[in-house]
């Protein structure tokens, strides 16, 4: 991280357990504000788990335990402390899941939901914010004439962008994207990647991806994980052209994983 970049998330000594099985091992990571950080690594290495820890979604699953600190700046609060209200956290840190999960309601209701939760009732205000969010997710042009139709009438890629719009509508400080393009065709993927450069003007993005090119193209920094540990983190350009760790090199050259 450069000196002129300000710190947004500071993860220190994070350990995570499902029951007795340790899935994250002593993670230390810093994420800069309004940058895109890509998380990369073989399947099952704990990428999703790390994201879920950041907005406390792991608390929904029984018998999970997170130890360590995750400080959110500029408030400088520890998200993992016992006094932390998960609602407060999730209002600031939004998440888009690996599989699209729209509500079985209209597209409009999907995007408006987060705003309604915060008590926004004014119809024109709601409408303009929904439109803005759909624009940010690059979906508005395709659906502007039918936003009151069921979200499940959309294609998979459109559903995923709807979920991104839903998360963006509440103007989060941090957006967690779990393989947002894994189920999409190249055109939809390009759509989302384009939007990413817009989105990061306002939001800090942490994105899991299996697509090395995507990480290289869209992210400022890339983290390589293996078996629950962070192996290497660096400027994306640098990490892909000149990895420091042998295991990283093996992974990006396709020698395993």
């Amino acid at each position: 991280m450069n000196s002129e970049e300000s710190l947004k998330i500071d993860i220190q000594n994070l350990n995570f357990f499902y029951k007795t099985k340790q899935v994250l091992k002593n993670i230390n990571l810093q994420m800069a504000e309004k940058k895109v950080t890509a998380l990369m690594g073989p399947s099952g290495c704990g990428k999703t788990t790390l994201l879920r820890c950041l907005n406390l979604m792991h608390e929904l699953i029984e018998e999970t335990r997170a130890e360590g600190t995750v400080n959110l700046y500029p408030q400088k609060v520890n998200l993992l402390s016992d006094e932390m209200d998960p609602l407060w956290v999730r209002q600031r840190i939004g998440m888009v899941f690996q599989k699209p999960n729209p509500f079985p309601k209209s597209m409009y209701e999907n995007v408006a939901y987060g705003l309604r939760l915060r008590g926004l009732k004014n119809k024109t205000e709601l409408e303009s914010r929904v439109e803005k969010a759909l624009n940010q997710a690059g979906l508005w042009k395709e659906v502007s004439d039918r936003i009151h139709q069921p979200a499940f009438s959309l294609s998979g890629g459109q559903q995923q962008r709807l979920c991104i719009a839903r998360a963006l509508a509440v103007e989060p400080e941090v957006l967690l994207l779990d393989e947002p393009t894994s189920a999409l065709d190249p055109i939809s993927t390009a759509h989302i990647e384009e939007q990413l450069s817009e989105i990061k003007k306002h939001v800090t993005v942490i994105m899991v991806t299996h697509n090395l090119h995507q990480a290289a193209r869209c992210s400022d920094e890339t983290v390589f994980m293996l078996n629950g540990e962070v192996i290497e983190k660096g400027r994306s350009q640098k990490l892909f052209t000149n990895p420091q760790d042998q295991r990283t090199e093996n992974y990006i050259t396709g020698r395993f994983g």
């Binding site: 929904l60 999730r90 209002q91 899941f97 999960n101 079985p104 939760l117």
Partner: peptide, 23 residues
């Protein structure tokens, strides 16, 4: 109901009550 329904709602900062009533 699929767990993802609950998950989606909580991830937006909904309370348990809101998730029950809305979804």
């Amino acid at each position: 109901l699929p767990f993802t329904l609950k998950e989606a709602s909580y991830a937006l900062g909904a309370t348990q009550f809101q998730t029950l009533v809305y979804h």
